[in-house]
């Protein structure tokens, strides 16, 4: 591999507005139930009696959103699970599903991030491809260009890591342990995130 492309998400800036999801869905004309990008809303906490003022309930809650698509993992489980070798990893690190080879068995739904999405009308699995069709056009990925909080970036993971020193590799709750698939996803964690330590993604 010459490089590893991936996403950067500033989870401090993300407010779950989902325009990234709609922009992507619109670009690919995806039907109901097929979403290459997903917005996860994570809530923690509850209400309690206020210690200082009996009779008053006060909240102890926190919440945040994460926007993720395909993490173009270094060791993707989807690729290994595919029985017909429809999934491959490109030289630039992108993980792609070939719709002409896919038989729609859905075994790639083992992905801990729900990246592969079954398109029932076409009978095949479909997935974020990092807007590979826009390569060389100067146009940014649909989600990146759409975000009104400028919370998303896409590019060489090493360059993104150098640019965002406070970012961690994909290991923020409720996302899966990054040690499993080594996602190429850098996240500046929201102040309430629990961060899982994972192995670093070395580019091989």
């Amino acid at each position: 591999m010459t490089k590893q492309l991936g996403f950067y998400l500033d989870a401090e800036a993300c407010n779950g507005c989902a325009v990234c999801l709609v922009a992507c869905k619109d670009k690919y004309d995806n039907p109901v139930g097929v979403n290459f990008r997903k917005v996860i809303h994570h809530t923690m906490g509850s209400w309690e009696q206020d210690a200082a003022s009996p009779g008053f309930m006060v909240p102890q809650i926190s919440a945040y959103s994460l926007s993720i698509a395909c993490n173009h993992c270094v060791t993707p489980v989807c690729l290994e699970a595919c029985p017909v070798a429809a999934i491959s990893k490109r030289d630039d690190g992108r993980v792609l599903i070939d719709p002409e080879v896919c038989v729609g068995c859905r075994l790639c739904q083992c992905c801990p991030y729900d990246a592969p999405q079954f398109n029932e009308a076409l009978g095949v699995m479909t997935m974020c491809d990092g807007c590979v069709d826009l390569e060389g056009t100067g146009e940014e990925q649909a989600c990146v260009a759409a975000c009104p909080q400028r919370a998303l970036e896409f590019g060489d993971i090493e360059e993104l890591r150098a640019k965002h020193g406070d970012a961690v590799l994909g290991g923020v709750e409720p996302l899966a342990d990054p040690a499993i698939t080594q996602p190429s996803l850098l996240v500046t964690p929201h102040r309430h995130s629990t961060v899982l330590t994972g192995r670093t993604n070395a580019v091989e």
Binding site: T75, V77, E80, L107, Q109, C110, C111, P112, A176, D177, A179, I180, T181
Partner: peptide
């Protein structure tokens, strides 16, 4: 085993 589940 963490890499094997059919669905997480």
């Amino acid at each position: 085993i963490t890499r094997l589940p059919l669905r997480h």
